[in-house]
């Protein structure tokens, strides 16, 4: 499945987390979202959000000043 891409560059935490959460909400279980952010805080916040809400963090990749984070939806709400 092609991931849904979200651009959260320049947004400060927790905005990237909110963008991810709101993007995942309407999607069916199994969907993949790839979010690009520049706030280094996402390296902590998005994994924490995934752990808390039962979603799967597939990976964090750093390219220059950007963080590309991939998350798979495992459950609703």
């Amino acid at each position: 499945m092609k991931p849904l891409r979200i651009d959260a560059r320049r947004l400060l935490c927790p905005m990237p987390v909110i963008r991810l959460q709101d993007a995942l909400e309407p999607l069916p279980v199994g969907s993949v979202v790839e979010i690009t952010a520049t706030d280094p805080g996402v390296q902590n916040d998005i994994p924490a959000w995934c752990r808390i809400n039962g979603q799967r963090l597939d990976g964090i990749e750093q390219r220059g000043n950007e963080y590309i984070i991939t998350v798979t939806k495992l459950c609703d709400d």
Binding site: C13, V17, G41, D45, A48
Partner: peptide, 9 residues
Amino acid sequence: KPKRNNALW
């Protein structure tokens, strides 16, 4: 300093 989000913590 830790950059954690306190609400998530």
